[in-house]
Design a protein around this nucleic acid. Sequence first.
DNA 1: GGCACAATAGTACGACCGTTCGTTTTTTGT
DNA 2: ACAAAAAACGAACGGTCGTACTATTGTGCC
Lengths: 219, 219
Amino acid sequence: MIRARTPSAAVPRARKGEETRAQILEAAVQQASEAGFESITIGALAQRTGLSKSGLFAHFGSRSDLQVAVLDEAARRFAETVFLPAMKAPRGLPRLRAIVGRFIGWTESAGLNGGCPILAAGIEFDDIAGPMREAVAGYQRQRGRELARAVQLAVDTGELAADTDPRQFVFELDGIALAYYHAARLVGDDQARNRALAAFERLVASYSPPLSPSAAARR
Amino acid sequence: MIRARTPSAAVPRARKGEETRAQILEAAVQQASEAGFESITIGALAQRTGLSKSGLFAHFGSRSDLQVAVLDEAARRFAETVFLPAMKAPRGLPRLRAIVGRFIGWTESAGLNGGCPILAAGIEFDDIAGPMREAVAGYQRQRGRELARAVQLAVDTGELAADTDPRQFVFELDGIALAYYHAARLVGDDQARNRALAAFERLVASYSPPLSPSAAARR
DNA sequence: GGCACAATAGTACGACCGTTCGTTTTTTGT
DNA sequence: ACAAAAAACGAACGGTCGTACTATTGTGCC
């Protein structure tokens, strides 16, 4: 749909509705981070944002549409917090390190008070067919592909062994990130970040190419 | 409290109530496995078991007591399915391997149709103070200690390097298990078990003691 | 300033939530 | 067989859920 834009509109600021919609999403993402998507309720969210139930409801056609919107927003923040900045690092191991460094504890960097909403959604909906399950599975697969590409680049630069299976590497990397969340958020291990970084270094070492003179020199 | 037992009671079968209580828990654990603890609702559970709401309710003083009871039951099944059988394996690497082999996909072995309830509880309640949070954290810490002990035994037998940090090892092992669940249940990777077992072998290899003649011969 | 429309509020509905209470049925011990 | 105790039921309560509807307020454009 093409909309003629009046040149007089100096700042095409989002029609008010989009602003409050963003505020709603902010509160909802926070809620999902703290207590899961099932805890996202119209009434509670209306109270949290100071809107009326019906006023809030009108922004999303249904609760499940709202949930999906929250997941989309969480995924957007993840990309914005973890992947986008890491792309500035040179390809190969430095970029991989940048990704991992931001991946570990990204929710705090993104201003979330609770856990990772995408992970929460995955566990909440892994047995419940529907749009949420498909959306979160899609995001996870996409993230897997992006990570695998970053790993492949590190193979290309020779920083990882030539026979590295990127998908296996990503599997083990995922494990480190998950173990971090598990240890940090649930068990309350304050060493979690150190353990995660140590695990990553061990992972990289175990995938390092056989020692060559130049590689040995680089140590 | 001492209760005089009449010798005529040949089979001191559980007072009827405990039987139905067990049936309720069976259904409830299943529900938690499939859709999380928040989805455990008195009405739905009553329908599932054929009881009346109030009849079911009477077995547990409150919904949150019911949730804790479900978590206890899940933890009991975990120990029964994973740890107890593995204790028959000789201490050291074989036992560790037995634990891991049963850990990966233990929910299916335990007859659960969905994911791991303990993991679900961890993510659902990691930000919600209360008895559930404390209970699940307690179980997780206990499991961590038991795993660490099994790792230490493998160090003692010389199958793992002497300078192995059992807690770091457990951290990485947890990651593998979590990555397995994530990949298998959400992303739908049918290679998940293979990847997990491969990751474990890589983990063991990376913690192997420096080659000695006897160790080399054992290969 | 006033028109058109987007945005929000208000109200009501039926469904289900956890929980209580009094009654009825079933089990248990003798 | 019978009385006591345990277990299950049925109805009702106050709340909150998501979601329709209509009314009111606010915003943006000429």
